[in-house]
Amino acid sequence: MVKVTYVAHDGTRTELEGDPGDSVMSLAIANGLDGIVGECGGSMMCATCHCYVDDDWQAATGARMDGEEDMLESAVCEVTGRSRLSCQITLSEALDGLVVHLPEEQV
């Protein structure tokens, strides 16, 4: 199991447990978490799964995927150096304890 903490815009923390291979987006959706929409089902078409990776987890989550940068440009909230599409972050044991912050809005 890989534990992920989602910090909503208002500071609410939700801890979820996923399996290696799940994405940060799909884990959130599977648990009905508000704050991630995931409209295209992880096809990198919608940017409604925007998240900010916590500073402590930047290295572990690694670089953005091919094309992710371009899709992020259409995210509705501010895109920063910590921004990722959560559908493109795949859980692995190395990400156990991951913390991501969610933007105020996704659409």
Partner: peptide, 12 residues
């Protein structure tokens, strides 16, 4: 095809 950059630019 396999070009998210142009696709996104086109949407805008």
């Amino acid at each position: 095809i396999n070009n998210a950059k142009i696709h996104m630019k086109a949407r805008r």
